[in-house]
Structures are given as structure tokens and as C-alpha cells.
Write a protein that binds this DNA or RNA. Structure first.
Lengths: 334, 334
DNA sequence: TCAAAAGTGTTATCCTTACACCCATGT
DNA sequence: ACATGGGTGTAAGGATAACACTTTTGA
């Protein structure tokens, strides 16, 4: 343990020079699919990145800096924004980093209402399940999960100490529900971290450390630059958890929408199919929406009422959200 | 809006030199009261501070740096630790800060099992309700709340724009339950921030900005250095929320304990009285504890079984926690 | 007429809450 | 005996999940 210091001083030169990166996970739902805004650098090998940039003296607040960088890089103006987590391990270093400065990365979850599909900006909206194929259970258990199971199990069994082995098996059982067979859609980050530790994802093979598998698995989705995929996993986990007790879904909806559109948005985020009649009752009985009086035609069937978010709901209920659980027998895919 | 930059580079000299402070909220429950570890500097005027220190190159991870600082400053070894939030607004600057460097503060919630009561270290364990007297509802509605209500209402009514006024009133209604009369113990941070904005707490008067009230209210508890009280509020809010779906309380319990001790710990954290028979059933039916076989004597009544935390519970339940709600008719204070 | 989507009704089940009550020990 | 804390039974009420079924449009 280092020697006890008298009293810290902010001018203390033992403190490190640090670069702070602000990184945004910008989420929208369009066409019933969850999208995340990425920057795809030109070139074959280039990896997808999240919009991000360093904190500079012009930025009065962290969130302001984030908004500025996203607008500069993609033209997208942000709506709702929420800080996720600060990543700062010393070995976490982008390949381009010079010198011995530490890079601290502050991740944000931000939501925008359906953007133009044909955004002419350098940003590209991508289905977030391209990065996490095992997270989409809307059409039943995803096929790629079968491919993950075996290497994960072997990774757990290959631990040196027996206590380690038990700990790994426990984490697997909890995160993927391998033992109990029950899938918890919120555990996105835990699942990604296990896949990383077991060497299944490409990111784990970049730093040159030793990994359990020699090469990443093909079925583990697209990689991203740096630890952006970890930040994306954090964002999805937070959003999936939050829709249950806070009315954040409505940040993604147009001013007026049908109950089916709302349901499909929740389904897109949670990666689950829901039971239609019960979903509608849940929404209405919570007082989360009110009639606009209008109806839509051309939805393919009977015209649907258009509703809007009812802001007063947050005053009336202590946890105004959509406590979703998967329908036992899933509605057919559209 | 600033001119579009070509592509950020980590070596970009527009990025700011930043000092990163690691700040710990160290929580324990002893004698049925929630305690937080503070450093009380000598002198009359000195404010309580949380253990904290700058991130330095020796620290491999943020959490490691935090643990080192807490041990150095207080001798306390940390158990459970969880990152809370990163505070980084530019106007947030300790009075001692030199130069134009920004200070970024990363707050952590950490839990330790009952420490020695007579800690000879420079750290002092203090009841956290000294800093938030309105948060303790264990003996019914706290008296100080009556004193807060009026100035808060006048602050809301004094907003310039009518939309601002409505927004403020809505926040008050939600956070303090003034309208609905329903108290939600989790909204600790929202309540502190409202008290700050309305100029009720001493911290709001430090930077010399204009405040609604000319002087802080006496009934708003002890102030802390910097924005440490805000960080403490964040920690309490997180902990109160988390005990409901994660078995974190057990990080605060000795290896064996009685159900009443567990209940009193939860009550101390949540600031509420609970219904005894239902609490016990909740704990046992969730499978959160198992018998040790031993019993305690000298509890003042019939000897109680000693139980221990049952780790397997986290595998069996998707949200293994203590979803507490206030008892309608409170048990008498001990 | 049929497919597709919008809706309504109803029931079984579980969980929570509150109330009433008995048990075992120390003073 | 009684105060104090330990502990059980149970019934009312609400929320949930599943089922079956009707309605209204467009092709």
C-alpha cells in the first residue's frame, strides 16, 4: 500500500492527465426495429463506431458536450439523454492513443423520435441486433444461441480452481438461463461480458492477450471499435430495464400512434413478443395514453384509434412503465 | 454551432486537461442506524467530506483507485462497490481548485459489514439522516418536512414562465408527494436537487449565484464539502432502489443474523417501518435465508433463530430482493 | 369470403396486505 | 404478570396471464 499522503490537493501533480471521451448510444425505433446510430468509416476493414468525441473546454456540461459531438458528427439532434457509465481501466486504450494518457469514456443513452430513414449524414442507422444476434427472441429462441452454448460451457469447465468453475457456471446459468431455461431480457451486459471473457467475440482477440478460444465465433454478431459494443450492451440493458418503471418508450414514439405501434416498439426493444390483449389493458389501465380522436386507416385491418402519451400518468403512478413479460405462446411474426 | 471537424483524434489538443476525483460513499448499518463514513477536518467551520482522491497512474482501474484512497484516508477496507455517476459540470469546482482545469468526480456506492464502533482512524461514521433529516420516516412523517413545504411551494409559484411554474409544481408533487400524499422513498436525489434549486440548502449559497431564498433553511440538515451531499443523495437513492431487486442488504449483515436485525437494517436504509409478519414471510418464501441452527438469547424476548444469506437464491429468482412498502400502521419505535 | 388487425369478456391463479392470534423468554 | 420480541394462520383484494370470442376494414 502506498504511503499515506497528508491531504490531497487538486493541483497535486501525482494526478494523471486524462482524456475524457463522450460516447453516445443514439437509439430510435423505425419500422418496428430497434436502430442505433453508427459511424461506418470508409474502407473494408473499418469497424462501426458510436458517435463520440473528447470533452473540451467549450463544453459547459458533459451532456452538452455529448450533444455537440453527435450533431457535429451525424447531424442528429438529440432528445432524451441519460448517463450510463464511465469506463476507465488503464488497459482500455484505443489503438490510436498516443503517449501514456489514460482514456476515460463516459457513455450515454439517448433517444430520438423516428429519424428520416434516408439520412444523408455520415451516420448510419443499424438494427442493433446485428451486434447482438442472441438478444432477439421475437421469433422464438434465436438460432445462434445454440452455437454459443457449447463453447461457453467448456470455458466454464476449463477454469483452474473449482471455485472459479462454480462461479463461472453460476454466471452462465444466471445470464443465459441455461439451467433454469428462463431468459431475462435485461441481462444484456452480463451476457456480452461472458462472451467476451470466453473469447467468443472479436473484441476479445484484439489486444493480444490470451483467450480461451483461439478465434472468435462467427455467430456472435458484428464487432465495433474500441469498447463501443460494451457501451451499446450497457445501453440496451438500461433501456430494457427502464421501460418497466418509467415511460421512456414514449420518447421514441411519434406524437400520435396506435397501440400496436407502441407494442411493436416495446417488443423491438425488449426482444420479446407480448400478449396483445393484455398489453393493451396494461397501457390503458395505467392511464399512460389518451385518445386523440383520430383513427388510422390502411393498417391492413380494422382502423385503429390514434392515442398520445398522457403526461399526467407520471404523477398518478409510482412506477409508470410497461412491465413486460414474454407471452407464453408468441404472436406470429408480421 | 461549431464548425464540423474532420475526425476526432485522441491526441487532439483541443481536449482539456482534466483531474479525475474518485469519491466514495461508504455505508454501514450499526445499531439499526444507517452510517456513512466521513472525514471531518479539524476546525470549527470545516465541513464533512466523503473520502476521495485523484485518479493517478498507479491505479489500474477506477475501482482500484477508489479502494486505495479510502484505505489510505480512513483505514477502512471496502467490500461491495458500485459506480454511481460521473459529475463534471464546468462550474462545479472546489474552492481550492487552481488553474482552469476541470474536475470530474466519479462517485461510488460501497458497502461494508458493521465496522468497529470505535474506529481510531480519522474517519467518522455518521448517521446519514443528519444530512437528510426529511428522509427518515421510521417514526412517522418527519417534522422538518413541514418547514420545507412552504418555501418550496413559493419557489415553484415564483417561476417566471407559467410553463416553468407547472413544471416545478409537477416535480414537487412527484418528489415530495405533496399533492398525492404518497411518499416514494427512492426519490432522494430529486428531493435534494429541488431543495438545492430552491436555495434551501447551504450548498446552494456557496458559489455566490443568485438563489430564491436569501439564506439556507435551518431544518435542511448538515452541509458537506463540494457536491458531496449530492453524491450521498445519489448513493442513498441507488441503495434504496436496489435492495428491492438485488440482495445487496446482505453485504451489510454479519454472517449470521436474526430476521429482526435484517428487517431493522432494511428499515434503516429505506427510512420506513415495515410490517413484521409479512416481512418475514417475504424473506423466507423468496428463499433468501437459511437456518444456521443456532439461536440468540438476550434479545429481550423469545430467543430468535439465527439465519444466514442463501447464495443460491440469486439463481432461482429473477429479482431476488426485498420489495418493501411502508406498513400502513407503523410498528412502535424500539 | 377471407385475412388481418382492433378490440372485449372472463376466469384461474398468484401475490400482497392486513388482521388476529399464539409462543417463549427475562424481570 | 407482563413486556418484549418471535412466529403462524388466514382471508380479502388486486394484479396477471391465459383463453375464447366479436368487430371492422381491405383485397
Amino acid at each position: 500500500m502506498e504511503a499515506r499522503k497528508k491531504r490531497r490537493s487538486t493541483a497535486d501533480r501525482s494526478s494523471e492527465s486524462v482524456t475524457v471521451d463522450l460516447t453516445a448510444v443514439v437509439v430510435a425505433v423505425t419500422g418496428g426495429e430497434p436502430r442505433v446510430l453508427t459511424l461506418s468509416s470508409a474502407g473494408e476493414e473499418a469497424l462501426d463506431r458510436l458517435p463520440s468525441g473528447p470533452l473540451t473546454p467549450e463544453h459547459r456540461t458533459l451532456e452538452q458536450g455529448l450533444r455537440a459531438w453527435v450533431e457535429t458528427q451525424t447531424g442528429q439532434v438529440l432528445g432524451y439523454a441519460e448517463q450510463l457509465y464511465t469506463f476507465g481501466d488503464r488497459d482500455r486504450r484505443l489503438p490510436t492513443a498516443k503517449g501514456s494518457d489514460r482514456i476515460l469514456s463516459i457513455g450515454y443513452l439517448t433517444l430520438v423520435r423516428g429519424p428520416r430513414k434516408t439520412d444523408r449524414a455520415p451516420g448510419v442507422w443499424q438494427d442493433w441486433y446485428r451486434f447482438f444476434p442472441w438478444e432477439d427472441w421475437r421469433d422464438g429462441r434465436p438460432a445462434c444461441l445454440a452455437a454459443l452454448r457449447d463453447p461457453l460451457m467448456r470455458w466454464a469447465a476449463g477454469a483452474n480452481a473449482p471455485s472459479d468453475r462454480r462461479a463461472r457456471e453460476e454466471r452462465l446459468a444466471l445470464s443465459f438461463g441455461f439451467a433454469s431455461g428462463s431468459w431475462n431480457e435485461d441481462r444484456v451486459l452480463e451476457r456480452y461480458e461472458l462472451a467476451y471473457e470466453a473469447g467468443l467475440v472479436a473484441e476479445a482477440h484484439r489486444e493480444g492477450g490470451s483467450t480461451f478460444l483461439d478465434a472468435p465465433l462467427a455467430q456472435t454478431g458484428r464487432a465495433m471499435a474500441g469498447d463501443h459494443r460494451r457501451i451499446l450492451a450497457t445501453a440496451i440493458a438500461r433501456l430494457r430495464g427502464k421501460i418497466k418503471y418509467r415511460p421512456v418508450v414514449f420518447e421514441l414514439m411519434p406524437p400520435a400512434f396506435t397501440l400496436l405501434q407502441l407494442q411493436q416498439t416495446v417488443e423491438a426493444l425488449a426482444g420479446l413478443r407480448l400478449h396483445k390483449p393484455n398489453f393493451r389493458r396494461l397501457v390503458e389501465q395505467q392511464g399512460l395514453v389518451e385518445e386523440t380522436g383520430a383513427v388510422t386507416l390502411g393498417t391492413g385491418g380494422r382502423p385503429a384509434r390514434l392515442v398520445r402519451f398522457r403526461r399526467e400518468a407520471v404523477l398518478e403512478r409510482s412506477a409508470p412503465g410497461l412491465r413486460v413479460r414474454a407471452a407464453r405462446r408468441a404472436r406470429r411474426a408480421p
